[in-house]
Nucleic acid binder design. Sequence first.
DNA 1: ATCTTCTGTAACCACCGGTCACTTATTGAC
DNA 2: GTCAATAAGTGACCGGTGGTTACAGAAGAT
Lengths: 198, 198
Amino acid sequence: MSKQQEKSQQTRHELEAAAIRLFGQKGFLETSIAEITSSAGYSKGSFYRHWESKGELFLQIIEDKLKSYREQRDGQHPKARDLDEAMGAIWDFLETIIDDNDWSRIFLEFTMHATRNKALRQALNQGAYRLSNELFASLVGEHVDSGYPPEKIGALNTALFEGFLIHSALGTGVLNKTDVRRAALLLARSNALKSNAE
Amino acid sequence: MSKQQEKSQQTRHELEAAAIRLFGQKGFLETSIAEITSSAGYSKGSFYRHWESKGELFLQIIEDKLKSYREQRDGQHPKARDLDEAMGAIWDFLETIIDDNDWSRIFLEFTMHATRNKALRQALNQGAYRLSNELFASLVGEHVDSGYPPEKIGALNTALFEGFLIHSALGTGVLNKTDVRRAALLLARSNALKSNAE
DNA sequence: ATCTTCTGTAACCACCGGTCACTTATTGAC
DNA sequence: GTCAATAAGTGACCGGTGGTTACAGAAGAT
């Protein structure tokens, strides 16, 4: 790699890091390009050497993070013995999202924008939700035997996770991680969902 | 009420209605004051006769809606006989929120902003979440007898609802209302949450 | 009739995302 | 080593934004 390319990549990473911090703390629209560049020690115009628009950077940040999550998932094969163990592994993973304050806020904001934008919605469905639903659904298909569709169990668990993510971001403090893990496990045992009996 | 006051109130309502529609469809920050006023047939400056800022209008819209929800709740006393019936009444109510597309998007967006703003966070905790948690918790306290704290059951159900609200706003279509009602009922039966047994 | 009060107007400000002509540093052919 | 080509980085600039304010004109009081 040439000196120029190295310098360019370094600048790119510096701007990215500044953007992630500012997007997380202030929000996407509330953060100006001038803020991003100047907080990393550059001028506004330099931004456009690396991205076409602020939106493109936002999308790239999302996709990079989802890619790293996917790699993280593929890297570990815990071979869970039962439902409890498998669910535990999933929530160990999900809690790293919740614990990363900047990122969880960026993700929630991206989700909001996706409710109004078809292209973003597709990116989200094929990215984050597919990842989450796959995680839950495969686990259910492997460890739970009932007629209730695994993808519904997956979606219910994803919904619960997203609700808890908001709960955590708001810092209301009624629920803790253990509460939600128990609830998720309850939802994964799908027999009670199919028939309404206990 | 004088002619002037009448005219002023009418203008206010016209601007409010235009704002709700635009905030829902485009988002708060993406909607300009000029758009709100001109779509209602007024000039930009007139806005400031009625509100101090766009943020004040946003907050007022939220508070008005929450107030109307609270009145709606207090107005009906269904005297549910059992858990299923009581939960059904709550979800009949919650689904009116989901079915109102503009409003549910506005609410989600407000929630996002609240994760970064203490004043908004307090307004949300004392408004929407208190309402939702109270609804669920009182129901659980009345119909379910177990050692698991009712406010936790309330918060879990609120989280599930919020996740489903996002799910609906994104239109992924895996879950339907019946699925979530069943899951909510499952979470309300707290015995299984306390001990992890089925 | 006229003086006051209040709604609505439009010009104005600082700042935004994005563009572009420019400077400066690196590269590679000779 | 020379020098033209290429690249990164700069900052003035553009149309449009949220917000401010001096002013016009209708309504109300006397």
